[in-house]
Design a protein around this nucleic acid. Structure first.
Lengths: 203, 203
DNA sequence: TAGATTGTTAATCGATTAACAATC
DNA sequence: TAGATTGTTAATCGATTAACAATC
């Protein structure tokens, strides 16, 4: 089986959003209905659904419950992953409270910050720790993933610290490009390019 | 000229990040250096640079200042766009304070919320207005773009209101798929798919 | 049945990678 | 000069779209 592409991950996540939020009470949905909501081709949708192993009913479409579950299986939403959030500012706080994270297999264990005002506070039931506790808590909880929401000027320095602590995945919300060893994976959550894509769609 | 693709926008934004944050004081950079930082092919980089109209020097690489400026031209960073942020929660606040927005042509004019505690407060110098003021302020300021950071259960209702007010672009940070007229463009800022992509890269 | 929708193949389209002559 | 790097074409690869028989 070939690896699932970026674009396919994006589409499946959107299909899941439709099934969860847009038509939560409908039993069947046609490929053309999904396609229209997202302005994509309907044969694209059918192909993606086939990839998930779901069969439809001619004249009816796809059973929504079955499709939703199949997408969750394909995207492994149920394999929860423990993560630490580095930086307890507004973005870190927003992500900690983002209810959907839990549904999609992301489990925020704790936050870290250097601000004494924030340390020992609780956000959505998660404690904010001093960065000094980071190494110990990584080991204790066997965490390998960090969400980085620190100011840009701190990003590389903090990254070096995370890597030394044993972090292998960094979900980077700063605009900085990070230097890391070959076995560490950085995913750039590129706020700006989302805006540029939207503007281009307008012509 | 063919329209610039999603992937190319993403890469150019990352190149810009390298030039701005990673090697701000270097005069020349080789395609292979950019490629290594991002784990992509160096001929991909050369092709992208050529697309921006920049010529390099054999044995040296590209002049960083020139390349940075060329990317800004291609991505139209300097055409500023006024936007309203709908929802003055943690995410709306984080985006309002996100310094890079201004650099990339995004000018937050004001925020809107329904919470009386938040209305009339100021975030990073921007005022929070009641939703009741929305229609008037859209017209006054000729704004056509809204950043949506409201709770999921409000998303469609608020969207209908924005569209009625004349909004044509919605940068949607909620996980909901929105029903809008054909002339309104929604861009889904898909937090979850970023995480799934990162996890997949790990194998 | 007639009509709507799926499932799937083939055709098209576009993006990435490989290769190498040109350049300094 | 020798060597490193660009610029660019051709080859490969993968993703999207079109088309239509099969199905209910």
């Amino acid at each position: 089986m070939s690896a699932i592409s970026d674009k396919l991950i994006e589409r499946l996540t959107l299909y899941h959003g439709i099934l969860t939020h847009t038509v939560p009470k409908v039993d069947y949905i046609a490929s053309s209905e999904i396609a229209n909501l997202l302005h994509i081709d309907d044969s694209q949708v059918r192909k993606d659904v086939a990839f998930c192993g779901v069969l439809g009913r001619p004249k009816y479409g796809y059973a929504t419950k079955e499709l939703k579950k199949a997408i969750e299986d394909k995207l492994a939403f149920r394999e929860t992953k423990d993560v630490f959030i580095i930086g307890a500012g507004h973005l870190g706080t927003a992500l900690t409270r983002y209810a959907d994270f839990r549904d999609y297999g992301i489990n925020v264990l704790a936050l870290f910050d250097t601000d004494k005002e924030k340390i020992n506070q609780t956000i959505n039931g998660k404690k904010v720790y001093s960065m000094a506790c980071f190494n110990d808590l990584v080991k204790e909880n066997k965490v390998d993933t960090a969400i980085l929401t620190v100011p840009p000027q701190e990003a590389q320095k903090v990254t070096d610290y995370l890597v030394k602590g044993g972090i292998k995945f960094i979900w980077n919300f700063t605009p900085c490009i990070l230097r890391v060893p070959a076995d560490v994976i950085v995913h750039y959550e590129n706020m700006i390019s989302g805006f540029l894509k939207m503007r281009r769609e307008g012509g």
